[in-house]
């Protein structure tokens, strides 16, 4: 009768297995990388799986990609050394490097030096594209992307609050967080939200792919440029994989020329980056109150 109960022996066995499973993992030095889930979450593995293969071939060590559900989770995984290399957004990269001493921004997309956010609107609003800030968005429903996104939240919130001299909650009828950029586009297109803020690269990619119905939604304003995405690596990787390892990773990234792989990001090429490039992001985040 009692054998159906989970006995201490079972638990002991389970703990042994659990820890042996994790202990095993320590011995093979797999480089684990992740990326912020900024678009279509069902295809994250397809998107970044091949990057792992590329890096593995270039570096001669096993490289693995782990999909992660939120921006914050990538930062946490990076901080906990469960991920050593990450494709961060501007804000998440700053947050990560503040938390992991000696971690370095090593590469960014060519486009990331002059990144933009597009404010898009459903045509039912009657809002038209302009160079001046569209103050007509006041009183509309508005969606950001992810709560931790640079192009989907930090920068648009900053520019909107700058222009309107009010907090976003006081400007819009309703403020939402769609989760990612693709979702922002589809929500504004369907009219679930009237106005939204979207990463300009994702907008252009989806426009090119014919996924956007331009009779329903269009860009009404473009923010000034700011630095955004970058590859960041932990400072202690050289200790694990040998001296100069982070330079090797950097070289491998800068050497990435396969247009198919670059399209995953989507960037035309990677160029060198350094931590100080992201000082403007840090300053803005402090102003908004996203970093103390």
């Amino acid at each position: 009768m009692f054998k159906t109960k989970i006995t201490p022996i079972h638990l002991f066995l389970f703990l042994v297995l659990l820890f042996s499973a994790s202990a095993q993992a320590v011995s093979d030095k797999t480089l684990v990388f992740s990326a912020i889930p900024d678009q279509d979450e069902t295809r994250l593995k397809e998107r970044f799986g091949d990057i792992a293969t590329y890096l593995s071939n270039k570096l001669g060590i096993p490289v693995k990609y782990v999909p992660v559900k939120s921006y914050a989770a990538v930062v946490t995984a990076f901080r906990n050394n469960q991920v050593q290399l990450a494709w961060f957004g501007g804000l998440s990269g700053v947050q990560a490097r503040l938390r992991v001493k000696d971690s370095q921004a090593i590469a960014q997309g060519v486009e990331d030096t002059t990144f933009r956010t597009y404010i898009i609107a459903n045509h039912s609003t009657g809002l038209k594209a302009s160079d001046d800030f569209p103050t007509g968005i006041a009183g509309k429903t508005f969606t950001f992307g992810s709560k931790g996104s640079t192009s989907g939240r930090l920068m648009p919130q900053y520019y909107i609050e700058q222009a309107m001299h009010k907090k976003v909650n006081d400007i819009f009828k309703r403020v939402g967080f769609s989760g990612n950029h693709s979702k922002t586009i589809s929500l504004v297109q369907s009219g679930a939200y009237e106005v939204g803020a979207v990463n300009f690269k994702v907008w252009e990619k989806e426009l090119k792919a014919g996924k956007i119905d331009t009779s329903k939604v269009s860009v009404i304003w473009k923010t000034p440029t700011y630095p955004d995405y970058q590859w960041t690596i932990r400072g202690d990787v050289d200790k694990v994989w040998g001296k100069g390892f982070s330079d090797k990773v950097k070289a491998a990234l800068l050497d990435l020329k396969d247009p198919d792989l670059l399209e995953r990001f989507p960037r035309s090429a990677f160029i060198s980056a350094k931590n100080s490039d992201y000082q403007p992001i840090l300053d803005t985040a402090k102003k908004i109150g996203l970093i103390d």
């Binding site: 297995l17 659990l18 499973a21 994790s22 993992a25 320590v26 797999t30 693995k64 050394n81 469960q82």
Partner: peptide, 9 residues
């Protein structure tokens, strides 16, 4: 445990 194990430490 084998199913849920991953390389995280």
């Amino acid at each position: 445990p084998f199913i849920i194990a991953n390389d995280s430490q």
